[in-house]
């Protein structure tokens, strides 16, 4: 039994959907960030699967950039969470309405 890129794409679709469900149903911004990471990883699996299937290194380069953007996103997101928690005792997505100007 040979592992083809279709296997990876199905797995990636499942992972992306789980991440999306988590993003929609969880209310803790930290867990929502983790769900965004899941979705980004699903995309990374797709990139590498296509890179292998199409003999093209560009897919792996794209993963590299996704990693960098994910790191930047987490840094900014977590600092927003820290800034909000300074002013409020609890943290749910609803508390982030204070970000409005």
């Amino acid at each position: 039994m040979e592992v083809t890129e279709t296997w990876y794409l199905i797995l990636s679709a499942l992972l992306f959907s789980i991440g999306l469900v988590g993003l929609l149903i969880r209310r803790n911004p930290l867990v929502m960030f983790m769900c965004v990471e899941l979705m980004l990883n699903a995309v990374n699996i797709t990139f590498v699967a296509f890179s292998t299937a199409l003999d093209d290194i560009a897919g792996q380069t794209a993963v590299f950039f996704v990693l960098v953007v994910a790191a930047a996103e987490v840094v900014v997101g977590l600092s927003i969470v820290v800034a909000v928690l300074r002013r409020r005792p609890s943290l749910t997505a609803d508390d982030l309405t204070s970000l409005r100007g």
Binding site: T4, T6, F50, S51, T52, L54, D55, D56, I57, A58
Partner: peptide, 18 residues
């Protein structure tokens, strides 16, 4: 068939061949 990725996205090795 075995060339599913090509059917989905088009070309083999568009920029840098592996």
């Amino acid at each position: 068939g075995s060339d599913g990725a090509v059917a989905l996205t088009g070309q083999h090795s568009a920029t840098a061949a592996l």
